[in-house]
Amino acid sequence: MVLLAGSVTCALVAAAAGGYAYGHHTSTTADNAAGPTRTPSTAPADARPYQLTAPRTVLSGAFVYDPTLTSPVPESAEDDYATFGITNPTPVRISYKSSSSASQQTVQLTGAWGTISDPEQVIDRHFAKTAQNAAAEPNGQTKLVGTLQTMHPTGLGDAMMKCQNIRTGANQYIITTPICVWADHYTYGEVVVFDPGALRNGGMGVSLGENADTAARIRNDARVPR
């Protein structure tokens, strides 16, 4: 599988689900994810139910909707989200490109809204499914790397977020970038920030903390009261 810069974001997210963050600061702290024994999430549900939208711009206009990178929601999405633990899920999927002509950064938001009794369980099931999908690839070109980490970006509120790096590609086209997933009692979202310029120069693109900060800000842009 040869991944070219123009199509890599969609290919990467498709493999995972089965730019630089706006601003040069990161306020995120992280903990190593819990092992097999997990205490159910106890964060209280907000008094108002929320839904997830697909705004045409995010991050104060720094990223704008890109129809060429936005792929259709898979037919299996509702069933998959229900399996994760979302009751009556409504899927959302949209891709963005930087509004600056000097940047090639892109962001993809994939998620759903509904009712979520255990946000952490939804996130853990997401990453378990990602690992399962990667292991099932006949060529073994995609896998999660490093440690799944619980993140605490500013502005996350009552949600939980976990992030992990994913590697995909072959030979000189290997790409490593983080996936961050949040869940609260009404919305779930996966955010991938991709920076082809950094990767082309031998870097990893954004860090887990930078991706988490961006994901928290996009949650605030896309999550609105029902």
Rank of each mutant, 00 (worst) to 15 (best):
G146Y: 03
V145W: 08
I86L: 10
T150S: 07
D195W: 03
N171C: 12
G18F: 08
T87S: 15
Y65R: 09
R125E: 10
R219N: 03
A17F: 13
E137T: 05
P153A: 01
L144Y: 03
T9H: 12
T147K: 09
S100H: 08
A17Q: 14
M151W: 01
A16E: 10
C180G: 06
T106R: 15
T147A: 03
A45Y: 01
G203L: 05
T115R: 08
A159L: 04
R223L: 00
T168A: 12
P196E: 05
C10Q: 15
F127H: 07
Y20D: 13
Q132H: 02
P225Y: 07
D79K: 15
A30F: 09
K162S: 09
S76Q: 15
Q141V: 12
Y186V: 06
D118H: 04
A5E: 14
A45W: 06
S103N: 09
S100I: 00
L199I: 11
Y96V: 03
V107E: 06
R38I: 15
E120M: 10
S207N: 01
A34W: 06
L109G: 01
S101F: 11
P119I: 00
N211D: 11
R217Y: 02
I123K: 00
G85F: 08
M161G: 03
W182S: 12
A14K: 15
T57H: 04
C10P: 14
A15N: 11
D46I: 04
P119H: 07
P44F: 03
Y186G: 03
D66W: 02
S207C: 07
V206H: 00
R226E: 14
